[in-house]
Structure formats: C-alpha cells, structure tokens
C-alpha cells in the first residue's frame, strides 16, 4: 500500500505507543510515523513486535516494535533503559494498551479486577514516570492517554474498565498541572464506539441499537482517534493540557 509522507508535523519526535499491533494503537503508530516521528510500538508478543517493525519498514517509515507487558513495572524500567541507551527516549508517549474483561461486578474476580486496573491504569503511571525525566530535561513532551467514553459514563459489565479509564482522567489532570511549566502537555482522548477487535465481541442487534445513538451515524474508526492524537502530539495542540477530548461521533456529549 502506497502511503504518502504528507506531513512533517512530528519531524524529529520520538513516539512510544503502547499496544501498537492492532486497532487504535496501530493507527496512531502509523499516523505518527507518517508525520515524521520515529515510532516505538509495543506488543505483548515477539511476533507482534516483529509485525510492527515489518509494517513500518514496508511503509518506509522510521521505527520498530518491542515486546512489553505494560502492567509490569520492572519490564518497563528495563525497556525504557534500553531506549535511553539507544538515544530513543520518547518525546511523545501514548498510553493506549488496554484490555476489557466484560463481567458483572458480582462476577468479577479479584484477579480480573487487578489485571484490568494494572493494564489500563497503572501502566500509564509506570510509563509516565519512566519517560517524564527526559521530557522535563528537554522542556518538551506530550503524553496522551487513551481513555474511553465509559470512563465518564460507566457501562454495565465494565466496572473495572470504567474505573481504570476514569482514573486516567484524574492522573492526566494532576500530571498536567505538575509539568505544565516545563512545556509538557498531558491529555486524554476518550473514544466512543470504535470498530476494533475489542468491540467485535458485541452482537449485531446491539450494534444496530448503538448506531442509533450516534448522531454522526457511523461507528468510529481507529484513524479518527489517530488524527486527534496527531493534533495533540504536534504543535497544533500545544496549548491544550489536562483535557479530555471525546471522540465519539456525538454519542455522548459530555
């Protein structure tokens, strides 16, 4: 597939994007690379990381994949240490990796709760902490946390997921206030219903009912989120911080 390198919005930037093998993370990684950034995309498996490397290389873009369990703080320290040694400390961090294990609260096990909180929320803390030092030093940085409409509205079967996504908003607002004076912005993008592997599990009847609630009459696409991320990551969004941008086709006007 021929892709134009039509922008230089992120020229010279290094972006770390978690969960970059598919869905929203993949789209963000590709979009950022096309805008001139060097992209390090994380995957949970070696195969996934190789796919990211191959994909970027096939598109003639800069970057590669790495294996990282974002819920594992020691692994994060180690991997970010390697990036430092390779002179690849990110100027842009996108905390995108996430899981949802749908279940009613009364059926959620303690392990499931902890896994969802660790992957969707603690990961953003670990990674922000690991990369913020070099951003402070460079007086430049962008952190983008991928939330969810459910962080604001909640949803049945998603108490852990919604709690984690709401937690990201609090983390974002606090960190934004801490580091704003050093020209680092921290924001949340809250997607609504985006067609990805994660949302494939929802049945057709439910899908149709959901579509009725979206004024723009279509489900979101990963690229809709990626374009918003590009805006926040580039100079276009340099005066936005601590904000939650809802990208949901009008499904919830919060």
């Amino acid at each position: 597939m021929a892709i134009e390198k039509n922008l230089t919005l992120l020229e010279g930037e290094i972006a770390l994007v978690t969960g970059a093998t598919r869905g929203i993370g993949k789209s963000i990684a590709d979009e950022f690379a096309q805008a001139g950034a060097t992209v390090i995309g994380t995957a949970t498996t070696k195969e996934g990381a190789e796919n990211i490397s191959n994909r970027l290389s096939n598109l003639n873009l800069n970057g590669h994949g790495i294996v990282l369990d974002v819920a594992n703080s020691e692994q994060i320290s180690k991997e970010v240490g390697s990036l430092k040694e390779s002179d690849l400390m990110p100027s842009i961090l996108v905390n995108n990796a996430g899981i949802s294990l749908d279940n009613l609260l009364m059926r959620i096990t303690k392990d499931e709760w902890e896994k969802v909180i660790a992957t969707n929320l603690s990961s953003a803390f670990y990674l922000s902490k690991a990369v913020i030092g070099s951003m402070l030093k460079n007086r430049h940085g962008r952190i983008i946390n991928i939330g969810s409409v459910q962080g604001s509205t909640g949803a049945p079967g998603h108490s852990h997921y919604s709690a984690a996504k709401a937690g990201l908003i609090g983390l974002t607002k606090s960190l934004a206030q801490e580091v704003g004076s050093r020209n680092i912005t921290v924001n949340v993008i809250s997607p609504g219903y985006v067609s990805t592997d994660m949302t494939k599990q929802i049945d057709d009847k439910m899908n149709q009912a959901l579509l009725e609630t979206i004024p723009l009459k279509r489900f979101g696409k990963p690229i809709d989120i990626a374009k918003t991320a590009l805006y926040l990551a580039s100079s276009l969004g340099s005066y936005i911080t601590g904000e939650t941008i809802n990208v949901n086709g009008g499904m919830n006007m919060l």
Binding site: L136, K137, E178, V179
Partner: peptide, 9 residues
C-alpha cells in the same frame, strides 16, 4: 518541588 526533582536529575 519540580525544581528539586530536576536538580536531582
């Protein structure tokens, strides 16, 4: 407090 963090760095 942020200055002190940067100083340590």
């Amino acid at each position: 407090s942020l200055d002190t963090v940067e100083l340590v760095m």
